[in-house]
Amino acid sequence: MLRPNTVKARLAAGEEVHGLFCSIPSPPLVEMIGCAGYDFAVLDSEHALVDPQQLENLIRAAEAVDLVPFVRVPEADPGAILRALDAGAMGVVVPHVRRRADVDAAIRAARYAPEGMRSLNGGRVPGFGRLELTEYVRRANEETMLIAMIEDAEGVEDLPAILGGGGIDMILEGAADLSQSYGIPWQTRDPRVREALRRVHAECAAHDVPFCAIPRTPEDHAGWRAAGVRSFVLGEERGLAARALRDHLERHREAPDG
C-alpha cells in the first residue's frame, strides 16, 4: 500500500541519502540491500530481464525492509512507467532524457490528473480499497518521484529547458553513457565528462532540483558532498558482489601455509 516517500522527505529536509542499482531480480538480495542500511534501490528493468511479476515481488521485498523502491524503466516506454508504479514503485528513473518533450511524456505517464494522465487503477498500491481512491490519487502525485537521467550530450545542452518546465523530482547523472555520447566510451574521468557533470549539477542547483551523483571513489564522494550534493547511488550490486567474490578468493589463495 502507498506509504510516505522517505527519500523525498529527507532530501527536502537537506539530509543525505544513499542507494544502489539492483540488476539481479532476487527478492532476498533486495532485502539484503535494505538490511545493510541503504535508503533506496534502483531496480533495473532497462538493462535487466525482469518480468512484471518479478518486479512486483522485488518491490514487496523493498517494502518489507523500509527500502524505497525506484524502478529504472526502458527509454521512452510509458507502459513500463505505468506497470512499475502500479506494482508499487515510489518513483521511476527515466533514462536518456534529451529534451523537454521526454519529460512531458514521462509526466503524462507517471502522474494522475491534473498533472498528468496516468491510467487509473486500484490494486495493491491503494491497499485493495483501504485508501479512498480520490485520496490515493492526490497522495500518489505527492509521493511518487520522477527521476530523469542525463546521460547524453543533448541532455546536457538542453538541461535549462528540461528543468525549466518543472515536474522533475531529481536528476541522476549517467557518466558512462555520457562518455559514449562524447565519443569516448567508458572514459568517465575524462575532463569533458567531468565538466559536463559539473554543468548538470550547477543547473540543478539553479533550479532547486536535487542532483544524484554516482561517485566512483571516496574522493569523488567527498567532492560532491562538499559541493552540496546529498543524494548518491553507490554503484551496482553486481559489481560489488563480483569484487567481493574476487577479493575473498585472492585472500584465501594468498593465505600462508599453516
Rank of each mutant, 00 (worst) to 15 (best):
R124Q: 14
R124E: 13
V125G: 00
P126V: 04
P126K: 12
P126Y: 09
P126Q: 13
P126F: 01
G127I: 06
G127A: 13
F128L: 11
F128I: 04
F128P: 11
F128R: 14
F128Y: 15
G129H: 08
R130A: 15
E132C: 09
E132W: 06
E132K: 14
E132T: 11
L133E: 13
T134K: 14
T134P: 06
E135R: 15
E135H: 12
Y136F: 12
Y136C: 06
Y136N: 06
V137R: 13
R138W: 05
R138H: 11
R138G: 01
R139H: 11
R139L: 14
R139V: 00
A140M: 10
E142K: 14
T144L: 07
T144I: 09
M145N: 03
L146E: 03
L146W: 07
I147L: 08
A148T: 04
I150N: 01
I150H: 02
A153V: 14
E154I: 00
E154H: 08
G155Q: 01
G155I: 01
V156I: 07
V156K: 00
V156D: 01
E157Y: 02
E157N: 10
D158G: 01
D158W: 01
L159C: 05
P160R: 08
P160G: 09
P160K: 09
A161P: 11
L163Q: 04
L163F: 04
G164H: 09
G165H: 11
G167A: 05
D169W: 01
D169T: 03
I171N: 07
I171Q: 05
I171R: 01
I171V: 15
I171L: 09
L172T: 07
L172Q: 12
L172W: 06
E173P: 07
E173A: 11
G174R: 03
G174N: 03
A175D: 08
A175W: 04
A175Q: 14
A175V: 08
A175Y: 07
A176S: 14
L178A: 04
L178F: 05
L178S: 01
